[in-house]
Design a protein around this nucleic acid. Structure first.
Lengths: 171, 171
DNA sequence: GGTTCACATGAACAGGCGTTCATCCGAAGA
DNA sequence: TCTTCGGATGAACGCCTGTTCATGTGAACC
């Protein structure tokens, strides 16, 4: 709180005029970023019909956001760790999951995606992204690209023998 | 340190007879678990020749270990967060990455895996697992299975039209 | 029994944290 | 000019850390 006050150019006391507690301050910032992310992702995917490309956009946007706000992520997880605002984080993840799940369901219904367990697939894609966020903090020299990530999640490691492949590789 | 001492049935002072600092204590436990993991994984994959099955075993073992030691993971990340023992964590991850990279390289050389960027693929698989570890802490009700994870990473989300598919789905 | 010594104890210490509140300040109104 | 008062200040408070060290303890040897 002292650092935040200094950075903002006000006193610690003034900080408590605007936010009841550190928890409230953090959750406010977090919710703001979440809304920004959700709006961006839904806007960018709106005009895409191909579920595969929607997933690519989802992954790109998520990773981009994480990179842009890496200082925030770092600060948040530095002293308190993961278990800080689990309540709002979970609400956040539920919404993220629902959105991604919708994309995947459409892909399966279209017959474009294999007959996989939707909810499992959703969790797995989100897990890669969650791992990416951690990597930003503890291993920033070994990040992967959004396109490589999308290609593997869509096409798998195992060679495809289909004539037309599953989906084009990253442009 | 007080809690650990109490749990161990000794005094805080005695703890400092065995470990110079909290950091040393943690790194000792961490290194022990790492060795256990490394030995288990290398033993289990030794008699497997199929790279795809090696990856399945790698993922299974990783997730199993994480689940077994979830209390340790939780405690470690509760107050200090990720950024605690980054030095030894990174050494650990380098070794993990090297091992997995070897498996994937063999798969690519065999022609079983597609012509992907090995190192990217390695980081992505590890990222899913890293995400899994985080999920254990903050979202334990929404974990995915090792087999679903392996199937998606090997075969991808997009439907395969090969006659014999890429690889059998989870047994 | 007396001495030695390695090990064990936990109160005390220093530093950091989130939070509070007596105090101050300066513009607006009388 | 004096009074009023809402916003701003930062020293102080209580709590929790990791770490230390004067003190205690008991087995082993003379």
């Amino acid at each position: 709180m002292r650092m935040i006050a200094a950075e903002a150019g006000i006193s610690v006391g003034a900080l408590y005029l605007y936010y009841r507690s550190k928890e409230e301050l953090c959750s406010t910032v977090f919710k703001g970023l979440f809304r920004e992310f959700r709006d961006t992702i839904s806007e960018r995917t709106r005009e895409i019909s191909d579920p595969a490309e929607q997933i690519r956009t989802y992954i790109r946007t998520y990773m981009e956001m994480a990179r842009v706000h890496r200082e925030f992520i770092y600060t948040f997880n530095k002293d308190k760790g993961f278990a800080f605002g689990v309540e709002w984080k979970q609400k956040f993840f539920v919404e993220l999951r629902r959105f991604l799940n919708g994309i995947i369901r459409r892909g399966v219904e279209d017959g474009m995606f294999a007959d996989i367990e939707e909810s499992e697939a959703t969790k797995i894609v989100l897990s890669v992204l969650r791992g990416y966020v951690v990597s930003i903090v503890i291993d920033p020299d070994n990040l992967f690209t959004a396109d490589a990530c999308t290609d593997i999640l869509l096409n798998g490691l195992v060679r495809r023998r289909d004539p037309g492949k599953g989906v084009e590789l990253s442009r």
